[in-house]
């Protein structure tokens, strides 16, 4: 139970390290890096590897953007299991709706409150 805090830190940190290597070594922009990580998460779930990672690392696996790809695939697969091919399309946002709705909601609210500041 307690070990999840350690594995969360280490796994989450390591996924970020992969991102940093894509920044500095592969010279990719943040947008390209994040897209690659999302696709990776989605493929890992297709191979059935991401869920075990969540069991092992908790938020270390659910907080990095890879989990977004995983959640999309997971939702699609769960629906596909029930309804066949059509489920691939309909199930996509089943699991991951909270992240996107929270981002839209808080982003919109922020635009009422904040102004960008050009400080260092």
């Amino acid at each position: 139970m307690f070990s999840i805090y350690i594995t969360s830190f280490i796994v989450g940190g390591l996924i970020c390290v992969i991102g940093q290597l894509l920044f500095d070594v592969a010279k990719l922009t943040p947008a390209h890096t994040l897209c690659i990580l999302v696709v990776t998460g989605s493929v890992l779930d297709g191979l059935g590897l991401y869920e075990p990672l969540i069991d092992f690392a908790g938020t270390g696996a659910t907080i990095p953007i890879t989990s977004f790809g995983n959640a999309l695939t997971h939702g699609a697969l769960a629906e596909a299991e029930k309804h066949g091919l059509i489920g691939v399309l309909t199930g996509m946002f089943e699991v991951t709706s909270s992240g996107i709705s929270a981002a839209i909601l808080f982003g919109f609210i922020a635009s009422f409150i904040f102004k960008p500041k050009g400080s260092v």
């Binding site: 989450g12 940190g13 996924i15 970020c16 390290v17 992969i18 991102g19 940093q20 894509l22 920044f23 500095d24 943040p30 890096t33 994040l34 990580l37 907080i63 990095p64 953007i65 890879t66 989990s67 977004f68 992240g99």
Partner: peptide, 8 residues
Amino acid sequence: GAGGAVPI
């Protein structure tokens, strides 16, 4: 760097 960009 990526430590700030990759998490949700």
